[in-house]
Design a protein around this nucleic acid. Structure first.
Lengths: 338, 338
DNA sequence: ATAGGCTGTCGAAGCGCTTCGACAGCGTCT
DNA sequence: AGACGCTGTCGAAGCGCTTCGACAGCCTAT
């Protein structure tokens, strides 16, 4: 293994000079720099990460904590994770993958050991038990998601409240007076996952304002669960003509069931989805949807974090504005043409 | 930040003693151990990762290289990644997430810098350009996937050749003589991704042996692409009564299209999928399928790797035997009852 | 009683890097 | 011409840990 000292000897300079060539923290003459760079190349030198971390107290690693559970939005998570890793690299950071399994202990371990310089948390609950730890440390962190109390925290998220509002607005504008919301699995609400709860808030408050009726039903994914949920909804509110779906694995089942029952989309019922772009365009009906900008969220998170690590930028909440794209799954409510 | 030396002082012992308490590499009297452990707890000590890595030349980090592209099997990738992270933790390792983006350079960087002790590669191509590097280093590695030349390599994968064979067998046994294979996107085959190619090999050779006709068509996911692909298949082989699908995002479209054309599953046509269990059970028809054991693959990979790191275990190929679960999407071929 | 072997502990020498202060050499200002 | 400030380079002191050899104290075997 090639060391700094060997490079220095090969180039005929001192070790510190090589170090300064690498870091650029002091000016080095062009000739010396080139000689050193040549030696580095010829010897195939790679700085030792451990030694670097020890000497500089910086690991150049960002920890990313992903949820262990895979009951929702797996592709979104993956896309965020990949965006985080890619963006981090462009800033000279590597990414350490932590699962939620260890919970708060992982936060303690990572900050305590200096394994990572900063961390990004996904799947944040409204009252997440990791938050006090984050507030208590000087290590920068960014949440992807929005907890209830954001003091002292930096968060990046889609504005899910606005998302909910937007969906209701769109349907209301088309004349739908009875709207059903197919939500995530009950467990997601039970653990107070921010995005689900906030979407619901947005849906409800806008519905109230616009005077439309809203029925929310959590739903496990899959056909059987969706069939049951749909039956109950139509039983309770037979006049339902608009659906908002926030659950990837319920979308296709819903469309199939509606078709099967002879309810045409969008002639008889309209469907708005909150899902990744790809899902909306690849579904059996091209879906009117609000996209979940996974890449953008991952990128933003890293950029906030790097800013904090560089001493720029303070705590702040970045809420990405939702955009509703009209496709083929929504149209005027049938009653409104009567 | 608490250091080893402070713990030692607090406990009234030398630093090396504390170190040995932590590592267990030398025997320590019970009383001393307890005193040290108490100090560790009271001071909230966490060993510094960088210093450890430097002194021991071990980082206790495993690098996991995931594909950048998201054109296939995203949930499977995610599940593997999570299984890798979880299993690694139980062995005292953390996981560094690398995207395929940097390609071979990432391998060089990680092995050169001692950032990680070992690495796991996913999405291996038959003639992957990272392989020579892996063979040339002394750093242990495990591939998830099977390249063409496995000398000097450890691989973990589902036995996709057997998987293909199994699917054909099942359909042939039911009397289907004309089988169509809906494959991954063309790009997947073009870059010679091992699992896709091997499945195809298994399908073809078993089909030849059993004397059934096989038509393979790559397919991008989604309804439009599937509609086109299906039309072509039925045009070319109108008698097709069995389908093998190896493309998550083509499954639901296929089922919907068949339904739409009045072809009942499984009465008129049978469908076998190669997909994660969850997809098979949540589809609109409960699918006869060969499961992709993502968790198991991730776990196996880590366990092989840890064995190598411990000096146990040599190069070897672990091929997980496929299991076909019969559900509601396959039945006797219509002609065979005539 | 003595040699030999354990057991438990300590001190010290690094691991490879960063960074601080020092300073030689040179150009510039008065 | 002397003082001053740059620029570019060096040496040395750590960063916090692991690990090796040494050794004190004790037990066992002779």
């Amino acid at each position: 293994m090639v060391t700094l000292a060997e490079v220095a000897q090969h180039a005929g300079v001192s070790a510190s000079t090589v170090s300064y060539v690498l870091s650029g923290k002091r000016s080095i003459s062009t000739t010396t720099r080139q000689r050193v760079e040549r030696s580095i190349r010829e010897l195939g030198y790679h700085p030792n990460a451990g030694a670097r971390a020890l000497a500089s107290s910086k690991s150049n690693i960002i920890a990313l904590m992903v949820p262990l559970r895979t009951d929702m939005y797996v592709p979104v998570m993956m896309e965020i994770a990949i965006a985080v890793a890619t963006t981090a690299r462009t800033h000279g950071y590597d990414v350490l993958l932590l699962t939620g399994e260890e919970g708060p202990d992982a936060v303690r371990r990572v900050t305590g050991s200096g394994l990572a310089d900063a961390m990004i948390l996904m799947d944040v609950e409204l009252d997440d038990e990791r938050l006090p730890l984050l507030r208590g440390t000087h290590q920068p962190s960014v949440l992807i998601g929005l907890p209830a109390d954001i003091t002292g925290l930096t968060c990046v998220d889609l504005d899910f409240k606005a998302t909910g509002a937007l969906c209701v607005e769109h349907l209301a504008m088309l004349g739908h007076r009875d709207i059903a919301v197919i939500g995530e699995a009950p467990a997601v609400y039970e653990r107070h996952t921010g995005f689900a709860v906030r979407t619901l808030e947005g849906l409800r408050s806008r519905a109230r304002e616009l005077g439309v009726r809203l029925l929310h039903r959590p739903c496990e994914g899959g056909y059987d669960a969706m069939a049951l949920t749909l039956a109950r909804i139509l039983d309770e509110r037979p006049g339902t003509s608009g659906f908002v779906v926030q659950n990837e694995s319920a979308i296709e089942p819903l469309l199939a069931l509606l078709r099967q029952q002879g309810r045409a989309v969008p002639e008889d019922v309209s469907v708005v989805a909150v899902c990744p772009e790809q899902v909306a365009t690849q579904a059996s009906v091209r879906l009117t949807s609000v996209a979940i900008p996974a890449q953008e969220m991952g990128r933003h998170a890293v950029e906030r974090l790097v800013a904090k690590l560089d001493g720029r930028g303070a705590d702040e909440v970045v809420l990405i504005s939702p955009e509703l794209t009209v496709r083929a799954s929504t149209g005027p409510a049938p009653s409104s043409t009567t």
